[in-house]
Every structure is written in structure tokens, then in C-alpha cells.
Design a protein around this nucleic acid. Structure first.
Lengths: 108, 108
DNA sequence: TCCATAGGTAACAATAAGGTTACATATATG
DNA sequence: CATATATGTAACCTTATTGTTACCTATGGA
């Protein structure tokens, strides 16, 4: 989940993801055409997106075809819609753990 | 928007936000009790959350009272619900700009 | 007043992210 | 085959994030 938010924390990456979503199967070079940064930086950004599972790719010949994967976003979205401002699913469990660890720290 | 995603990209910060949401008006020290990291790091994390406008605070006596602000999350949420996987509002405009700059780059 | 408590700042070190250039590999295509 | 194209990797530098210790300020109470 950290990786998804981290990947989305860059406008450049969000735009790249947007582009790929609108041009499914486009190549790394295609993406690079739309941005001012170097091809290597494009690849690094795409790698960050892939690490967050927001990007799926396959190699076809000498090209790499890129595809947007909505699943991680859907996951976060679902958590947010469940209980609007209380936005992560593990909330209750985490709080329980926190309360337990608090007792340990407060009463050593 | 970058600041919000960046702030949310740390599980520790998400948990802090969760805690403050469940304990409105709690102090910096209160938050620190629930986490293993130092008080200074807690303050830095809180500062990151405040930079994203996810946190509101006021000083009362020598304590600082912390409050969760749902607005930035609501904003992102709204964008996502509008058109699910197409998750940012400036999409159409940005794409237009990208297409324009593409022509400039492709045809110099 | 004296002092413990709560918060804030400064300075620094380690690690990660953003960015570059140079080189390497694989694959279409004349 | 020769070469341009598309992608990948290595090395390196800069900046940002994460984390520390030490010190400072202000407030509440005995």
C-alpha cells in the first residue's frame, strides 16, 4: 500500500499512468515522447509504478508494451468508500495492536 | 495532491492519522506513546501530515491539540468516484497539453 | 521560586529518490 | 551483414527523507 501511495505522489507518474491508460500497449519510447525528462528517468518512473503493481508490461519484439492496472487503486478506493474518512481496512486491528503496545510501553 | 499521497505513503503516518482521528484533540506526546520512534520523528511525521493539510492543530497551554482533517482525502476520493479508474480531474486538460507538446517535440 | 513536563529547534549522519552520462544488448530492416 | 531502433544497465552526483543527539523555550504545579 505504501508503494501505491508513493508511486501516486508524483504528478509526472500520475500523468504517465494516465497516458498508458489512454494508450494501452504503448511503448517506453512512446511515453518518453510526452515528457520532458530523459528516457532513463521515464524507465525509472515506470519501474516505480510497476513496483506498486499499477503497471503491467510485456516484451513484444524489441518493444515493451505497457498496460495500466487498476487493481491497486480499486483496492484503496474500496477501503475509502467502505467508511469514507476512516480510510483503511486494518484500522480496528491496528488500533488494537497499538493499545497493546501502549500498555507495554506505559507499564514496563 | 502530491503532498497528500506522499504523506499517506508511510504506514506510520497513516496509523498516526488514524490514531488522531480516533482521539481528537490528543497531544504530540500522546501520539508518541503509541509509536516506537522518537518524539522528534513523531513531530516530523506530523509536520508531513500538516503539510498535506491532513492535520489541523492548535496550541492550548503547553500542549498542542491535534485534529484529523478529512478534506484532502475527500477531494481525492471524489475524483476517484467520478470516474473510477480514471482518477484525476485534470485528465482531459493534461492530455490536451501533452498532445500539443508532443506535436512540438515530434515536429521540430 | 524551583522544577518537571510539553513542545520546538539546530545540527548532523544515513539512506532513499531523482537525475545525469556512458555503455551494452537485442531486434527489425535496408 | 550492417545499421538504426528500442530497451536495459552501470556508475555517478544531487537532493530529499528518515533518523539521531543535544539544547532551548514555555507552561503548570508543588
Amino acid at each position: 500500500m505504501d508503494a501505491v501511495f508513493l508511486a501516486l505522489s508524483s504528478q509526472t507518474r500520475r500523468k504517465m499512468l494516465d497516458l498508458i491508460q489512454n494508450m494501452p500497449g504503448c511503448s517506453v519510447g512512446d511515453v518518453a515522447k510526452y515528457f520532458d525528462c530523459s528516457r532513463i528517468m521515464v524507465m525509472k518512473h515506470l519501474d516505480t509504478l510497476r513496483a506498486a503493481d499499477l503497471l503491467i508490461s510485456r516484451k513484444v519484439g524489441r518493444r515493451r508494451e505497457l498496460f495500466f492496472n487498476a487493481v491497486p487503486i480499486q483496492m484503496i478506493h474500496d477501503r475509502w468508500t467502505t467508511e469514507y474518512s476512516r480510510f483503511w481496512a486494518t484500522k480496528a486491528i491496528d488500533l488494537k495492536h497499538m493499545l497493546e503496545s501502549r500498555q507495554q510501553k506505559a507499564d514496563p
